[in-house]
Write a protein that binds this DNA or RNA. Structure first.
Lengths: 110, 110
DNA sequence: TTATTATACCTAGCCATACTAGGTATGTCA
DNA sequence: TGACATACCTAGTATGGCTAGGTATAATAA
């Protein structure tokens, strides 16, 4: 990760959910998509991703199925309706948070 | 805090440094300033702030002195030159991070 | 006067979260 | 065949904010 890992806290889940909302993907693929889409800012580690995926599935925000992709069986994840509702809330929270940070930072037109 | 506390991770330090860069303040005052400036989004706890202040002082990013404010002795914190340099870097990191998150979230003009 | 509340500072221990570092297995390519 | 990328997994670690408690002073209400 190009930025301090602390920033990831709280966002990792939302980012994963968001990517799965656009397109069902398997774990390893998510890491590459995230890296590419963020212009190499996010380099999520497997030790971060897989526990998140397992927790999301356990909470029924995503579901998984073994599918053959490019001649190989992969565990493909798909967002659920519940996951979409949670994602919408988390996106709103992110917006509120980032606006607040920028308000603090840009006081006085700095 | 109105938003999930996880988002604070990595930002709390920068926000404190940023406020002290504008104006020397004592701890309790920082909490109120932060709350006000963020329209009640940030409600930083004392158990969060004081350890941050002590760490920042230990790292020589801020310095403190006991001053009488409104007829009472308070521990007033002041940013150092080193603190200003670190703040500039952290602001840049925040910008990079938030841009990256928004890039991931708004793919396809969503 | 006394009780309550707000101010002001502090810290030990808790908990959530991302990471490190290791493991296993398969496919590709030199 | 050996090296590397792909693909998944997890135990343990480190970080960082919070909970919940403490102390002390000043202002305000009963």
């Amino acid at each position: 990760m190009a930025v301090d890992k602390g920033y990831m806290s709280g966002s990792a889940r939302m980012l994963v959910l968001n990517l799965l909302n656009e397109k069902s993907q398997y774990g390893y693929e998510l890491i590459k998509t995230l890296k590419q889409r963020s212009n190499d800012v996010f380099d999520m580690k497997e030790g971060t991703l897989y526990p998140i995926l397992h927790k999301l599935e356990n909470d029924e925000l995503i579901s998984s199925s073994n599918q053959e992709v490019s001649g190989r069986v992969r565990k493909v994840y798909c967002i659920t309706d519940k996951g979409q509702r949670v994602l919408a809330r988390e996106r709103e929270e992110w917006r509120e948070f980032s606006v607040a940070v920028n308000q603090v930072l840009t006081f006085g037109g700095i």
